[in-house]
Amino acid sequence: MLEEALDHLVRGIVDHPDDVSVDLRERRNGRVLEVRVHPDDLGKVIGRAGRTAKALRSVMTALGGRGVRVDLVD
């Protein structure tokens, strides 16, 4: 559910939705959602002063609990 939710949230805000992928990795210290986007969309997903990335993290924490991390992979 978490990766699907994040995938949807990111796809909706980028110019290249088909290039979005999200992988959920289970780590000893919790779950990590790895987000990959088109290089041209990286700035969009980070946002001014990291605002968009922060918003994505905030919503994913709300849905998945404190142990969920979001990593933007470039």
């Binding site: 909706g12 968009t52 918003a55 919503v59």
Partner: peptide, 16 residues
């Protein structure tokens, strides 16, 4: 905070 985050993302989705 989550509501504000969701609003921010929704605005971006609309802008797109």
């Amino acid at each position: 905070v989550t509501l504000d985050a969701l609003q921010e993302l929704t605005r971006l989705a609309v802008y797109r």
